[in-house]
Simulated scan of single mutants.
Amino acid sequence: MIPMERASAHERRMLKILRALNAQDRATLMAFGEFLLAGGAALRAAGGECASVETPPSTPQHEPRPPDESVVAAIKRLRRVYPMLDPSEMLHETSALMAAHVLQGRDAGAVIDELERLFLARYETQGSRSAEEPDPSTNQDAQPL
């Protein structure tokens, strides 16, 4: 007999919730779980777990949009295209769009279009913000303490 790992309290609670839901709500929960999993690396880094730090490319790494792409797949693709953006800063907006699709039945194509505009706008805002910020090491007006 293969020894089985005992489920944690969180896992048992999740399973209880999943079993209590109807089929549509289960699908919604699974889609949201996949969405959260897609942002897991950023959330773990924000939570303090150790992660290797690499400097992301400064320009988008464009990938073509596949036909019939899901919203979750689009978020993953856009995070690869814009690795210089901090996903935790966009979590509220991306989760609101994901919820509009999953919970309110908004068309996936329209949500993906909006996600693409959101990521592009954040990229452009980040570029203009970093161009405006002076390099503190070159501040000639700094007074010694």
Rank of each mutant, 00 (worst) to 15 (best):
S88F: 12
A31W: 05
S130L: 13
R106Q: 14
D86R: 05
P57Q: 01
F32D: 01
A73Y: 00
G48H: 05
R106T: 15
T138A: 09
A27T: 08
P57E: 05
A41S: 10
N139R: 08
Q126A: 15
T59G: 09
L118K: 02
L97T: 03
N139H: 03
H62T: 12
Q24V: 08
I2Q: 12
M98C: 12
E114L: 07
S128C: 04
F119L: 04
A7W: 06
H62N: 14
H10N: 10
E133Q: 13
Q143I: 08
N22D: 10
L78Y: 02
L21N: 00
S95V: 11
L115T: 00
E63H: 13
E5C: 05
L78K: 02
F35A: 08
T59C: 12
R44C: 13
H62R: 15
D141E: 07
A23Q: 06
S58E: 12
G39I: 03
Y123G: 04
L91T: 11
A73D: 04
G127Q: 15
H92V: 15
P64Y: 04
E132N: 11
L85E: 00
P66T: 11
L21E: 00
P67Y: 01
A31D: 05
R77E: 01
R122Y: 10
D135K: 01
A27C: 11
A20D: 05
G105N: 12
L43N: 06
A23P: 01
P144F: 04
V111F: 06
K76G: 05
P66M: 14
A142I: 02
R6S: 08
P87Y: 10
A9S: 06
Q140W: 08
M90F: 08
V72L: 00
S52N: 08
L91M: 15
F32L: 10
D135Y: 02
H101S: 14
V111C: 09
